[in-house]
Nucleic acid binder design. Sequence first.
DNA 1: ACCACCTAGCTAAACGTTTCGCTGAAAAAT
DNA 2: ATTTTTCAGCGAAACGTTTAGCTAGGTGGT
Lengths: 342, 342
Amino acid sequence: MATIRDVANRAQVSTATVSAVVNDSAYVSPELRARVLAAISELDYTPSLAARNLKRGRSQLIALVVADLANPFFARMVWAAEAAVAAWGYSLVLFNSDEKPENERRILARIRMLSCDGIILVPVDVTSAIPQRDTEGEPVPTVLFGRTVEGQKTDTITIDNVSAARQVTNYLMDLGHTRIGTITGPLHLTTGRGRLDGMMEAMRARGLEPAASHVRPGEFREDTAYSVARELLTLPEPPTALYIANGVMALGVMRALADLGLKCPDDISIASTDTIPGIGGLRPRLTRTEHPVIDMTNEALRLLIDRINRGTNADPRNVVFQPSLVVGESCGPYRDSPPLAR
Amino acid sequence: MATIRDVANRAQVSTATVSAVVNDSAYVSPELRARVLAAISELDYTPSLAARNLKRGRSQLIALVVADLANPFFARMVWAAEAAVAAWGYSLVLFNSDEKPENERRILARIRMLSCDGIILVPVDVTSAIPQRDTEGEPVPTVLFGRTVEGQKTDTITIDNVSAARQVTNYLMDLGHTRIGTITGPLHLTTGRGRLDGMMEAMRARGLEPAASHVRPGEFREDTAYSVARELLTLPEPPTALYIANGVMALGVMRALADLGLKCPDDISIASTDTIPGIGGLRPRLTRTEHPVIDMTNEALRLLIDRINRGTNADPRNVVFQPSLVVGESCGPYRDSPPLAR
DNA sequence: ACCACCTAGCTAAACGTTTCGCTGAAAAAT
DNA sequence: ATTTTTCAGCGAAACGTTTAGCTAGGTGGT
């Protein structure tokens, strides 16, 4: 492949002149510019970003590390991130830690080797470590997404999980439900913990509390939620309403209802934090809080590009998005003695 | 950030010795090796992939260019590709051409600049151009995925679209349906064209042909399929069965049915090529051909890594996956005079 | 005519790594 | 004891680009 030296030879100019034309970084006379452009075209010259990176210390790469790429929530985030990164003139390097700390460590080491200009990270745990450029501690520009991490001075983009859960729980209580169960996310994550806290706070504010047997861990996984929902729904005294802590688990719960021959809201009311795109149009429409994933991702990129350009000394910023309740068709007023599952 | 020279200084050896230790590429005495490893640790040294790339001519990057990242089919592909690429020791650079030729051209130019070691490309059109390393025409190792391109000597991974459509259409005809409609993909794509061809061939083999008004373009988009389905289903003599050419459009059709108060298979039978993960568990379960996206993606990566290692001179390989019909609950036997939509 | 200033284009070093070829010391062969 | 062979470790060039500093020629002022 042709290099800048080949182009310089062909155009009878220096490499500095070719570089000035390619980058439009200095005045070059029209005559020389025309010769350089002709040589570039004739030789089909493409600059090497590796060489440019080596000289300038910028890779034009943004790393995105999601926690569970199989989750449609993160698929939407990837979609938005790719578009935003392209719009800013970068390329997206995608990693999936699959909720494993050892994967995350290896990925962050790889990101240092690639000398990515910035990172968007969905941390696997509250102790995830932001990579540093060197032992003196200058961090790679990083935005934490959706979840926060202890003791780290980085920009963060989160949603108000407590408020999301509170809105859903209040809605169910407004409909008269008092026996409300929940299927939770992992409680070591700020998202999982915040959503359970929000539900508990909302119920306690009205002098209520879920039965211990009605609070089950679903690990943010569809299949786990499916199993747990079957258990909940076949208890002697099942809940009359369910708060489900993410969209993927909501899908599992809907599958469990279908398999048990139960309908919502006839037999049970269900509502969730977030949903799955695509099923939003199916009946019954799920009552849920909506996460503005696209807006959050775009804002994360804006913060990150700003951090890359302005350096890492400025105070970190924490942007908290507010979820909004979307009332669907999956919740109804409390009624005595819902039919037992068969 | 520490460089190999810093490590060499600290360990009192040469950069060649440090490189030999880091890469395990030559014998180094235990004493020197220990000194180098200690220095690496003390200085928190991370090799620069940019410098390595410049010297070796290998970036350790694989580019994945999908055609529509909003489509869950491609989201699954991205999930599988990230895992496979990581397993082979590469990093994944993700691009979304959004079915636009001008995006694809810009993306392929960027991939050359990044000197990606290989590309998996879902081409936007049958005339998409595989990038060359130089004007002498040595191509970047590339595997075309799902769709093929005219006159290009590259490895390809496809599904037998004709067979997929034929299986679904035969199933519907076996149930007694003769008035079968279809919502097609873009016909300039080998996938869209192949599926319509397969349906036509299957019907013609039994002396049948869809009514012209029953063949509508859905562009592989959910919202387009939704509109088109409403039109089809409110015709004076609507089809009694529908073949839908991809999973996303099947979702749109199901939404249209729900909005029109129609049920399948009671009011109409519907079946599709491919589906959307996540809705497979909801009722009624969609009858469909299943695309082994994960297997196809893994095989694409195997072909690509092999091509990277062995060079681009070997004959191209074309692996065609066979879809399999999965009978769900969305099709029933033909019955006279299905109820009209209200 | 001479001097001062400006500027387009050039030279060459540097970015961080790899690796070829060299060399001095040790081991083996005679 | 001498000669030959082997090998661990090293020096330095190269990968392709950018850019600081230099210079020759042109322009403007006196």
